[in-house]
Each structure stands twice: as structure tokens, then as C-alpha cells.
Design a protein around this nucleic acid. Structure first.
Lengths: 135, 135
DNA sequence: TATTTATTTTACTGATAGGTTATTTAACCA
DNA sequence: TGGTTAAATAACCTATCAGTAAAATAAATA
């Protein structure tokens, strides 16, 4: 139980309905019915989506009489953003060329066998090789 | 078929094994066997993860004799990063207080009924209310 | 050509995700 | 109190996911 936070966060974001709900909540808190209105799905379906978002810490639910106002809690997005940001260099143009070059070097060295890895490839804080699998 | 790119990207990232694979590839291209080595799972499992990453455009596979070297292609991460970045204001401290204030205002106005939405809440480019559901 | 190495594909399994309808809970209102 | 509105829960269905073992494919090598 309890996969790591990044997994839960990304999984929550991997659904267009849930992303749209977050988009709506960015404009201010909202009731469940109001959140549901743009969608062609039933309330229980929305309720489930909200539960996923809540478990990911992306929303918080209060109580106002019979309404359960939802509020955006963007903190987990910070973690997600900074994980992704590790890779920024890889999508920036200038790096792409350097990358291609370094990888070519690396391939040749591998062929020639031995010799330590190329000079100083911008090294990424290896996202834990995750011996973490589910039983 | 073909859910939108963000969905596919986030879904690909919502797995620690796949994130670790990307982490490994950030250090340079790698064969499948090499990628598999840190994990306690079988080759076909890794092969499937690679297929998910490939379909998300996060890796590219070449051919070098019997090896299929994988390379990181970080472009989709850019899109993901900029989607998340819409919410940056919401996790930054200074905004949290403003947000709480604006949401309180908004709640009171809702109670009083009528009157258009509060002044100019930092508005987010509403991530499509996604009539997009799967058939 | 036969064998080995690297990888993918196939066929299967159990668990989970996303949706539904029907029912229940909670709070307000007449 | 009884009725209405808001939302959550339960029970169910189907599709997809993450893994497996076994077989097939592809290329190098003896």
C-alpha cells in the first residue's frame, strides 16, 4: 500500500477529467455538483475522481451545510514539477545537439570497451532505481 | 483511441519503474538488458514499460545488431512541465495567503448571491473541460 | 548450419480504474 | 415530521495494467 507520492500525483494527473477539475478549481473553490456540471458523467463518477485528487493531496474538501466545497491544493504539483525539471536540459535545443554528440562518443567508447564514462555529462540525480515494486 | 498527449505522458510517468528507466537514460543510451538489470522483474515486463515510454514519445529505440539501444526523448516532458507550471502561483507561499483571501471573498459573494466573480483572480487557461471521454 | 544472445510477442492472470445504477447519509426547509 | 437537495457509498461491469512463463524473432558467432 501507499505507492510513493510522485506515482500518486502523476496517476491523478493522467486523466483529462481530473485535470479539468483542477483547472476549474484554480478559479476558486466549488461544490461537487458545480464541478460535475461540465461533464457527461454521473455524480458518483465525479465523486471518485475527487477522491483520487484528494488522496493525491491535490484538493481539500470542506463542509458548508450540505455542500462539500473543494479547494485546490497545488503543493504536490511542486514536487512533480521539480522532478520533471531535472530533465529540462534534455528538451532544450542547445542541449539536444550536445546530447547527440555525447551519446555518439559514449557509443564509440563502449565499442572500444573500457575507459570511464564521457567527461561530465550533465548527470541527473538518478530517480531511485526503485526496488519498490508491489507484491 | 489516442487519448491526448498529456494523459499519455502523465500515465507513463505514473510508474516508478518507468521513471527510474528515464533516470537511467538521462545518463546516456542503454540496451534493454542493461535497463532491466536494476529491477527484480522479467525482461518482458521491462519491454512493456519501454513500449509505454515509446508510445508516450519519451524514448526512442534504435538498432545496433541484436541490441535495441534506447534514448531519452524529453520533449513530452516540456508539455507536462508547462501544464503544471500554470499552477505554480498556487503552491508559492505568497499566493497561498492571497488565495485564501480571495476564496473567502468568493464564498461570501456566493452567499449574498449575484455579483460577478471576484475582481481578477489569477485566471488559469482552463484545461479543456474535456467533453473528451472514452466511448 | 547450429548455437547463443538480445529482445519481442503471445497468452494468460489478478488487480485496479473508470464508469454505471441503486441506495444511503447528511443537512436544509416547509 | 416529511420532503428535497447534495454528496457519498455499495455493488457491479468492463477494460486496461502490470506482471508472468513460454515461444518466436533477429542477429552474431562457432
Amino acid at each position: 500500500m501507499s505507492a510513493d507520492k510522485l506515482t500518486v500525483t502523476f496517476a491523478a494527473l493522467a486523466d483529462p477529467t481530473r485535470r479539468a477539475i483542477l483547472g476549474r478549481l484554480a478559479k476558486g473553490q466549488s461544490s461537487v455538483t458545480e464541478l460535475a456540471s461540465p461533464f457527461k458523467m454521473t455524480m458518483p463518477a465525479i465523486s471518485k475522481h475527487l477522491k483520487v485528487l484528494e488522496k493525491a493531496g491535490l484538493i481539500e474538501r470542506g463542509r458548508d451545510a450540505q455542500w462539500r466545497p473543494c479547494r485546490l491544493k497545488a503543493k504536490p504539483l511542486e514536487e512533480a514539477a521539480s522532478w520533471i525539471d531535472q530533465y529540462r536540459q534534455f528538451w532544450e535545443e542547445s542541449f539536444d545537439r550536445l546530447d547527440a554528440y555525447l551519446q555518439e562518443i559514449q557509443r564509440k567508447e563502449a565499442d572500444a570497451a573500457s575507459t570511464p564514462p564521457p567527461p561530465s555529462i550533465p548527470e541527473i540525480d538518478s530517480p531511485e532505481p526503485t526496488d519498490d515494486r508491489q507484491s
